[in-house]
């Protein structure tokens, strides 16, 4: 027998059969949860009970469960990824909750992220933004010599900080305007900081900003909810960088 104490929790989970279903909250009881369960494992336990009782399990997105893939996407008690700093839902553990807690679980809510089912949303709008300019056009050929292209360490570090974005969508989900500026700016800033990205910097920033609007995301009004919700701690300084790059692009 395990000597772990177990918790019983009340879950209010958003259930929606499909994109056109109005959806509603359903209440479930999660029993036998230990502090070592991750949040997703807790839902796995609830789903097993649901399956045993002949009900449809809660549908949710997940993949690596290591906090690096950006697939998990749940708003827990009003905060994307549950509010633990720099933590995705899969790395959020039940020790953060107390026995008897009531938890609200909702999908990302943004017009540009339509709900597919329950907690799963369609995040392909982020792919559309990347396709608009989140790349460098380079000629393939032989392997370049090491250190042929010198990049100062501070620039490399800056680019790496921006490249940490896993594209999970928490920034737009947290934003009161459903703006995708943090996501877009992370890619713009990363590539603008590096010599490989500089030639296309002006074209990239305007194309990605336009794609963001066409996808139906709102406009950034500098609330900075995104940075607080971001599981990778992407800084809003990259949004300022995007704005600078955008202004610069006007004079090209």
């Amino acid at each position: 027998m395990s000597d772990h104490k177990t918790m019983t929790l009340t879950l209010n989970v958003w259930r929606q059969k499909g994109p056109n279903d109005p959806g509603k909250f359903e209440t479930y009881t999660a029993k036998g949860i230990t502090e070592h369960h991750s949040f997703l494992e807790m839902i796995d336990v609830v789903n097993e009970d649901l399956i045993k009782s002949g009900k449809e399990p809660i549908v949710f997105d997940h993949d690596c469960r290591e906090g690096i893939c950006g697939m998990c996407s749940q708003v827990i008690n009003g905060v994307p990824h549950g509010g633990q700093e720099r933590t995705t839902v899969c790395q959020l553990h039940m020790r953060k909750f107390k026995d008897g807690d009531t938890i609200f679980i909702e999908p990302w809510r943004a017009t540009a992220f339509p709900i597919i089912k329950d907690l799963v949303v369609d995040r392909s709008a982020y792919d559309t933004i990347i396709q608009a300019g989140g790349y460098t056009s380079c000629h393939t050929g032989g392997v370049p010599d090491g250190n042929a292209l010198l990049i100062p360490k501070p620039d490399a570090d800056y680019a790496m900080d921006a490249a940490e974005c896993i594209g999970c969508g928490a920034c737009a989900a947290a934003c009161p305007n459903s703006s995708a500026m943090l996501f877009t700016s992370a890619k713009v800033a990363q590539l603008a900081a590096l010599p490989q990205g500089k030639p296309e910097a002006a074209k990239r920033v305007t194309a990605m900003v336009d794609a963001m609007k066409e996808c139906g995301f709102g406009n950034c009004s500098n609330h900075y909810e995104c940075q607080a919700a971001c599981p990778k701690g992407i800084n809003v300084k990259f949004i300022a960088k995007l704005n600078r790059e955008y202004l610069k692009a006007q004079f090209k």
Binding site: R109, G216, N219, H223
Partner: peptide, 18 residues
């Protein structure tokens, strides 16, 4: 545009920075 982009609200409204 912002209210169109964010038409569905969360049941729990938690403010982080705003």
């Amino acid at each position: 545009e912002n209210s169109t982009a964010n038409s569905a609200k969360y049941a729990i409204n938690t403010k982080l920075k705003r």
